[in-house]
Design a protein around this nucleic acid. Sequence first.
DNA 1: TTGAAAAGGATGTAGTTACATTTAATGTAT
DNA 2: ATACATTAAATGTAACTACATCCTTTTCAA
Lengths: 149, 149
Amino acid sequence: MGIAEDIKQKKFSSEFSKAIVNLIYTNSWLNQKHVSLFKPFGLTTPQFNILRILRGQHPEPSTVNLLIDRMLDKSSNASRIIDKLEEKGLVIRKQCKDDRRAVDVFISEEGLSLLSELDKEMDSWEENSKSLTDEESKILNQLLDKIRI
Amino acid sequence: MGIAEDIKQKKFSSEFSKAIVNLIYTNSWLNQKHVSLFKPFGLTTPQFNILRILRGQHPEPSTVNLLIDRMLDKSSNASRIIDKLEEKGLVIRKQCKDDRRAVDVFISEEGLSLLSELDKEMDSWEENSKSLTDEESKILNQLLDKIRI
DNA sequence: TTGAAAAGGATGTAGTTACATTTAATGTAT
DNA sequence: ATACATTAAATGTAACTACATCCTTTTCAA
């Protein structure tokens, strides 16, 4: 079913503005999938994203600023997301030696093993719902990159 | 600049999962643009969306359920968004005659004229940042529709 | 017709986000 | 060295979201 039927809007002022609406709608659709995927693991989407960035850096630490810089959703509040992850024992905070203003954040063993559990879920979700071929995905990536000029 | 450079992630497990990340990132990029577009008019994005749906129905009313059904972001709380719009005089609530459980929501004259102001802004933004051709937009629409199978 | 179930919407609440402010550490120009 | 600006992160707060619950009205079966 196309976007026009999904949101029951027949007319759009242009193909481009239809694509913009479609992007927002598809993102929201995707987000709902992700939320229900992460929920059984007690994680929110921003928490999951932070954990993945930390794993990308592991065993090196990340400062809070680096996390903010790389987060997909720039608007969320990194400090407090890290609070939550720390409460759950998934990350560890240490004062940075070189710059005592900065905080080094590490992913813990628990964090790594939780992520690897989640990887399985993610992979099987992506496998099942992999609706685009590699070629199509490549085109989608190019078009999305182009939107952001 | 591609998504890989933007979020400084070199490797993705597949083109598809890269496209998923790209979708989320592009949506967030777009959302920031929209927020700063709506802000001078004192509107949030969900408020703007509700107003647009109401205008689409105008002069017919919309029930709250219809609004929920068509909102791009299903998760937000329609009742309270309508509260805000009503406070600002942009919409009018009336009890529905046929079904006294239901509420008919109308867009007011003020709402219509605010939207037409915003249309100008939106159009000029889309004109300036129209980064895709019609053909490209069409392809993007197809690919996004396909993701949501 | 009456009582249970369902539907439409509002509301309470806990948790999150957005944004401004604060605190502490570092950089920099005099 | 000292004062001022800048940076990193945390925090206070108001607003918003997600989700459950509630209230009223409608539907429908017995």
